[in-house]
């Protein structure tokens, strides 16, 4: 029997992209999601990534809620922190103090809930993609784009509130201090598009970075597994599996790292806008 090699590229694209089908574990078959939902002419029918986002959101909420209850109970009983709550608490405090407050500066506590939610939501989405039969919602440009969009709005609106309309305008129409007359007009004409591009590039980079990091790891894993089917050789299979195991561990690190970086950079950008004067 001659084997016809599968189209590895198509498989990789199919596995990492969104779809209306969810493969259920343990031979339970597939779950066909409803299609045809419309909102203002847009197709908003749920997809695999929507479901995994919902699962991630639910898990984040359960984690924080349960940890909060536990910490509160232990606190009320006058006992030292410990257990699951203490672990979550350490992570929460790290993100709050060393990511949000440290980079936003004074008044950073107000943004802490947003940065924390961002961190945990992205982290859980990333981690869900590492499970068998899982899907990485953060490996989808629409998802990272929407997250970057909320970050963009948070950065700009918080800047507008903190600086006032006049101060905020200065972050767009930039005139070097001390320049007057024609020079100032010229500088403003040159610098304004650059400032606007600068504002847009930041969330764009956030969006692409998260998407690329989450997708690239999966691509490598699939490509390594694809080698097995290209060669049909047990030796290659053993090597591939070893590499894939390593890649999965690396992806575990990347899942935490990218959630951290997204939260960190968002905090940095918010801080830059807060103290732009």
């Amino acid at each position: 029997m001659t084997l016809q090699g599968p189209d590895i590229g198509a498989v990789i694209f199919a596995e990492t992209s969104d779809s209306h089908l969810i493969e259920l574990p343990f031979g339970l078959g597939e779950w066909k999601l409803p299609t045809g939902w419309k909102l203002f002419g847009l197709d908003v029918s749920p997809t695999k990534h929507v479901v995994f986002m919902l699962v991630a959101a639910a898990l984040v909420f359960l984690t924080i809620w349960y940890a909060g209850r536990q910490v509160q109970r232990r606190h009320a009983q006058g006992r030292a922190p410990g257990g699951f709550g203490a672990g979550v608490e350490a992570l929460v405090l790290f993100v709050r103090n060393d990511v949000a407050v440290a980079n936003i500066g004074h008044g950073g506590e107000r943004f802490a809930p947003y940065v924390l939610t961002l961190f945990f939501f992205i982290l859980y989405c990333n981690l869900l993609g590492l499970f068998p039969w899982g899907a990485t919602a953060t490996g989808n440009l629409a998802v990272t784009g929407a997250l970057a969009l909320t970050a963009f709005l948070t950065i700009e609106v918080s800047g507008l509130v903190a600086l006032g309309p006049k101060g905020y305008l200065k972050t767009i129409v930039f005139v070097p201090p001390g320049m007057k007359g024609l020079g100032a007009v010229l500088m403003a004409l040159i610098m304004t598009p650059i400032e606007i591009i600068g504002k847009l590039v930041k969330p764009f980079a956030l969006c692409l970075r998260l998407f690329a990091n989450m997708t690239a790891g999966h691509f490598v894993v699939f490509a390594l597994l694809g080698l097995i089917f290209l060669f049909g050789n047990w030796g290659v299979a053993a090597g591939s599996v070893a590499f894939v195991t390593f890649m999965m561990l690396l992806e575990l690190l990347v899942a935490f790292l990218q959630a951290y970086i997204f939260a960190l950079l968002t905090s940095v950008f918010i801080g830059m806008m807060q103290h732009a004067h």
């Binding site: 199919a14 596995e15 847009l42 029918s45 997809t47 440009l141 929407a146």
Partner: peptide, 22 residues
């Protein structure tokens, strides 16, 4: 699986998914 699941490439941007995400 590759043939059946085919929802397009990972570079497609689905506006509906953006709304869902937000």
């Amino acid at each position: 699986g590759g043939a059946e699941g085919g929802g397009g490439s990972p570079f497609d941007i689905n506006p509906g998914l953006m709304i869902w995400t937000v």
